[in-house]
């Protein structure tokens, strides 16, 4: 893929599409099943721990074929992400310390009523799986 000639680049496109279809074909059924499993159920725990654990292991042992050496410096402009990310993390931490009450809700407390609905829960689970795919390719 990184040979530098045009033919290898164009040949990569169908393979990339096939990979995406394969991932979508594997992730969508899992998300559809997971959407029907209520919180605190044994099945939900087993599914998240099993699927998550398998993907975690695959992601940690996978070696991306980027050919890049690990970057030593943060990309230029990275610090601009610190303020909003810090506010988000700080608010979450304060709400957690204050007990995650309706007056001081954490993100998970705010998300709970939405995640009780099957379509939202299934879509959220699919988003979680696709986030893995986005991470592991880097």
């Amino acid at each position: 893929m990184e040979a530098g000639d045009g033919s290898s680049v164009t040949a990569a496109a169908p393979a990339d599409t096939r990979t995406r279809l394969l991932v979508a074909g594997a992730f969508v059924p899992i998300a559809l099943v997971a959407g029907g499993l209520p919180s605190f159920s044994l099945a939900a725990n087993l599914l998240v721990l099993g699927v998550g654990g398998a993907l975690f292991w695959a992601g940690v042992t996978y070696r991306p074929l980027t050919g890049r050496s690990p970057a030593r410096r943060w990309p230029k402009g990275s610090t601009r992400w610190l303020l909003p990310a810090g506010v988000l993390a700080g608010m979450e931490a304060v709400s957690f310390v204050l007990g995650s009450t309706p007056e001081h809700p954490t993100l998970s407390l705010l998300a709970d009523p939405w995640l009780e609905r099957y379509p939202v829960r299934a879509a959220g689970f699919l988003g979680w799986l696709l986030a893995f795919w986005g991470l592991v390719r880097r």
Partner: peptide, 30 residues
């Protein structure tokens, strides 16, 4: 950038970020 961070042969960045991803899934869906 975080994913590329290693200590020796140990992929610390991948372990940290994918571990956080795993925890998020467990926290919200289990």
């Amino acid at each position: 950038h975080v994913l590329s961070y290693r200590v020796g042969r140990l992929p610390v960045g991948r372990i940290a970020l994918l571990g956080f991803w795993w925890w998020v899934g467990w926290h919200f869906f289990a």
